[in-house]
């Protein structure tokens, strides 16, 4: 029984070692420029989502017209800023 257990221990140790060192996956290289561009796009997406939400809340009657207009304008300005950044990133790369 002990011998069997010892054999199992050796076998599993070898298996674990093989598993750990056999892998040779290519990790995705993440260039700073790509990461930055991705971040900006996420930001833009978030702002667009905010705009959709805002519009929906307005349609649902939760917001007064001036509140809606003002928030929409501010979000659009914010989105434009991000779009300009995206363009700049494109130029840089």
């Amino acid at each position: 029984m002990t011998l069997l257990a010892a054999f199992a221990c050796v076998f599993f140790t070898a298996l674990a070692a093989w598993f750990v060192f056999a892998g040779d996956e290519r990790l995705p290289e993440d260039s700073p420029a790509a990461a930055r561009l991705r971040a900006l796009r996420e930001r833009k997406q978030a702002i667009y989502d905010n705009l959709r939400d805002l519009h929906f809340e307005f349609l649902a009657g939760k917001l007064a017209q001036p509140d809606y207009q003002r928030s929409r304008q501010m979000l659009e300005t914010e989105a434009a800023r991000v779009v300009r950044e995206i363009q700049r990133c494109g130029e840089a790369s």
């Binding site: 905010n50 805002l54 939760k62 917001l63 007064a64 001036p66 509140d67 003002r70 928030s71 501010m74």
Partner: peptide, 15 residues
């Protein structure tokens, strides 16, 4: 019930 950024008195009352 509070809107993001700013909620006016009118919206508050309505909600």
């Amino acid at each position: 019930l509070l809107a993001w950024r700013r909620t006016s008195a009118a919206s508050l009352k309505r909600n």
